[in-house]
Design a binder for these strands. Structure first.
Lengths: 342, 342
DNA sequence: AACATTTTTTAAAACGATTTGGTAGATTTC
DNA sequence: GAAATCTACCAAATCGTTTTAAAAAATGTT
């Protein structure tokens, strides 16, 4: 059913019907109500593409999904969806070639200039991120989930990774640990750098030398968690504690520790970062996992909210949000063992 | 840059330019080439919303995401993205109210009638799924990922859950197990029913009575896996084997078994269904997990492909694809223990 | 060289909404 | 009671493409 047809059935002009439905003031309450009721009854719904063309708004927020199928991603999106429910704005997920950086840039370019979306969310930025430069150059609204160090003013939301990891590491030092391994995220991403900094600062504060042989950077998978921790545990003296970037990594560490006949929480302490997944909870692991915690879903919801504000006209340089991360101590952390020779 | 402007810069009419770019035959090879080159050079790109309005195509496939943030989801979408890369079709993720079934139906209705997408993919259908009835009624293209028992002809892709679980259960029986517990998916979903059937048929084939106290239906989370298996293990005689619906469930079972001082693969055998996640692999669990395996990512890629075929005019009733599931035996399955009293 | 045919190009009509700039008629103001 | 203001509605322009129908140019045929 088209507007014209619908309007004539009501004995009104398309103008009035359009205004009635989009809540303009210049239409009497009586007609507005009638129009609304009839729209439901007759099932009239404006053609979204016509609306988009004429208003110039796309009614969608773009997200670019890497090929690696991050498990965080679904939670983040689910949070976005939660906030966007009822807003008549959807989430457009763009396949990424993911072959190289040039491709990714041209993908952003295409996505933005084609008018498919009103704003995009940039994930896991690097300190000097090309995507941010591009989007800023195009004058396109965007929100960065994470932080970068570029000069261009832009909206961002992030968690305080540095302080979270500093506190986690400090806590382990308080417990007497001196050889603390760190399995961090991918090289070059700002969040990894921030976590590195938190880790190193905590060590330095207490005069513990930094040992590069105790640090790894990679994707968050249980297998890599297992491999790195396994190889760290082969060192002598071996680490007595681990700081891990994700729950999956922690699963790998647990396995590695067990496979060496050691006990988590006694021989080896573990703190991991927990993005709060409904299907895998730190509390229920055995032993329960001490964690730095921040809800990915909440971040997604808030991100959607901030994008809405951005589109509503709030200046980007005003939108900076840094979330504090909880440190929750459970059974996987304990005093350093008296002696720790392998 | 608009078409009109771009065309006049080339000294051509909008018509010719449009045809040249969309590969119509009625334009000389020479002009076509020139147009293509200039388009790149001057950065002309058709306004997608105008194209959509006039062609009536949305250039997007819709997916409705439940609020529960299923971890399978990201993998499936990632697979879709892989296939859709380069097709200029994106994935539209719609937030779902998820409050009740009526809401979900009206959401599908809205999504479809608003012209935002060209087709939708329906996940985890029930035997008599309202969504299928609705979409069929609207004459809208859709692909069901999973199966239903409705009369309406429709396109679907599914894995052979029944046979997979029958084989898994049979194998456990071959190993001498008699009390085999089953932690299945949510009640009412066809895939759960199929798995139930496979399980029961395997038992019946070998004259083992079905015991409802050994079966659970719920979401796939490690916590629920733990709780159900824990309570099953408290029974006397206790089960000596588990068939589980997901990797997360299996993690929970492993924990429960360990927490009872039992050993997976020796005291208790476990087979789970593995959707193949890059971040959590059955092979790397300790002990490595025997699994029925089928790649969710591959399903996503193929689904996108089938939707493309559907949109290309292939009749829906012709698109039925049933994938065989591998059964991969690893260390988590072994002969039933001689005596198994708790 | 004239006509028929094919190839290339174009003007103008969609597509389905929003929005600008009005116009009647009712109400208020002086 | 005329002028000014307000209220409720509407006609027509607009958004940026694709596509239909037709004209112009090029080619082939006799």
């Amino acid at each position: 059913m088209k507007l014209k047809e619908f309007a004539s059935q009501l004995g009104l002009s398309p103008t009035t019907v359009s205004r009635a439905l989009s809540g303009y003031p210049e239409v009497s309450e009586k007609t507005r109500k009638r129009v609304a009721e009839e729209a439901v009854r007759l099932g009239y719904r404006p053609n979204i593409n016509a609306v988009r063309l004429v208003t110039g708004r796309a009614g969608a927020i773009g997200v670019i999904m890497g090929r690696t199928g991050e498990f965080h991603f679904a939670e983040f999106m689910s949070g976005m969806a939660e906030r966007l429910d009822g807003e008549d704005i959807d989430i457009l997920v763009s396949p990424t070639a993911d072959r190289d950086a040039t491709d990714e840039i041209s993908l952003y370019n295409r996505l933005v200039t084609s008018g498919r979306v009103d704003a995009v969310i940039v994930h896991s930025p690097k300190p000097n991120d090309e995507r941010i430069a591009l989007l800023h150059g195009l004058g396109f609204p965007f929100l960065v989930h994470g932080r970068s160090e570029t000069d261009v003013p832009h909206a961002w939301i992030d968690i305080d990774n540095e302080s979270a990891i500093r506190r986690a590491t400090s806590h382990l030092i308080d417990l007497g640990h001196r050889r603390i391994a760190m399995i961090n995220g991918r090289h070059g991403r700002t969040f990894s750098l921030h976590r590195d900094k938190g880790y190193r600062d905590a060590l330095q504060e207490r005069g513990i030398p930094f040992d590069p042989r105790l640090v790894a950077h990679d994707h968050f998978t249980d297998e890599l968690g297992f491999r790195y921790s396994r190889s760290f545990l082969e060192q002598s003296p071996r680490p007595t504690a681990f700081v891990a970037g994700s729950m999956m990594t922690a699963l790998g560490i647990y396995r590695a520790v067990r496979s060496r006949g050691l006990v988590v929480g006694k021989d080896v302490s573990v703190i991991a970062h927990d993005d709060v997944f409904p299907y895998l909870t730190a509390e229920n692991m055995v032993p329960s996992l001490s964690a730095t915690r921040s809800s990915m879903r909440a971040a997604g919801a808030r991100s959607a909210d901030l994008v809405l504000q951005l589109l509503g006209g709030r200046p980007a340089e005003e939108i900076h949000e840094l979330w504090t991360v909880e440190l929750i101590l459970r059974e996987s952390t304990g005093p350093a063992p008296a002696e720790a020779q392998s």
